[in-house]
């Protein structure tokens, strides 16, 4: 199951694990905004990207998320990056001036590679932020956090509680379904199915042998769960208190202020449309 690291909760007890999920969700959004801010020159873009990466790397160290796990994620999207690079080579970004090679009418710009590199860096950073959130926050806490954010929607008669309940049940069943998938996978491969090699027809056949039993047991499980809920008098409309109560503490306040200041700083620099490097170190440029 090494492949499914993105979004997997790692039950440790680091400082970030103990923070409030609402604060973590909010700071993830802020950091994502900071990552995707545009800057006037290439050098400055990479310097700022590096600065973001440094902050995220420190957060990763604190929450014990390993860089290796993020690299594993990148392996699954290398094809996307390759396509992006080809598109960037044939359709160079606006204002490309640095030509590295030329053959006839076709010019190869350095900017094409810088653009790809920029997107790759941002993707790595985005993965990093997302993994810090999911690795340090259990699915239950996440649902609680999101449930809190959508609470105001109740005013416009949005079924907030039902949605939270559905989401938390769905999250609860992910490990169960993975287990079930594993069992059916093993059962079918013991009957000679080749899921990894073989031609397309064989793979398709294998997929059917996996998906149909999985759907059947998922339906059976949800049916059983619905009966179990009804048997215990579950009423989705009822007003209820929750067993787990989210507690906002001083350290959450301090952290959210720090993160907000950081994001605000990045946004301000970006909004100024000013190449600060050239501004402060004109000699080097």
């Amino acid at each position: 199951m090494d492949k499914y690291i993105l979004g997997k909760y790692v039950p440790l007890n680091t400082f970030i694990h103990r923070l409030d999920p609402r604060m973590k969700i909010l700071s993830m959004i802020l950091l994502m905004v900071a990552i995707f801010m545009p800057f006037p020159s290439w050098t400055f873009t990479f310097v700022m990207s590096g600065f973001n990466a440094l902050i995220i790397f420190v957060l990763m160290l604190i929450s014990k998320v390993r860089l290796r796990d993020i690299i594993i994620q990148l392996r699954s999207i290398w094809f996307l990056l390759l396509v992006l690079m080809i598109i960037n080579i044939f359709l160079p970004p606006n204002g490309s001036i640095h030509i590295i090679a030329q053959s006839g009418n076709f010019k190869l710009y350095a900017e094409s590679f810088m653009q790809t590199g920029k997107v790759m860096l941002r993707l790595i950073e985005m993965f990093g932020v997302a993994m810090i959130l999911t690795a340090t926050t259990s699915p239950q806490e996440l649902t609680f956090g999101f449930g809190w954010f959508i609470k105001p929607l109740k005013k416009i008669k949005f079924p907030v509680e039902e949605v939270s309940m559905t989401v938390s049940i769905a999250l609860r069943f992910i490990p169960t379904l993975i287990e079930e998938t594993n069992r059916i996978y093993k059962a079918q491969s013991s009957r000679g199915v080749d899921f990894k090699h073989g031609n397309l027809k064989m793979k398709f056949k294998g997929l059917i042998a996996l998906i149909i039993p999985l759907f059947v047991s998922a339906f059976t499980m949800s049916d059983d769960l619905a009966f179990a809920l009804e048997a215990r008098g579950y009423n989705p409309k009822a007003e209820r208190t929750s067993y787990r109560v989210l507690k906002w503490s001083t350290k959450d306040t301090i952290w959210i202020i720090l993160i907000t200041l950081f994001a605000a700083g990045i946004i301000t620099i970006s909004a100024m449309h000013l190449d600060l490097l050239r501004h402060f170190f004109p000699k080097i440029w």
Binding site: E180, I184, A187, A209, V216
Partner: peptide, 9 residues
């Protein structure tokens, strides 16, 4: 396997 009845498709 255990619960082998679930492997039919």
């Amino acid at each position: 396997f255990q619960f082998s009845e679930n492997q039919l498709f």
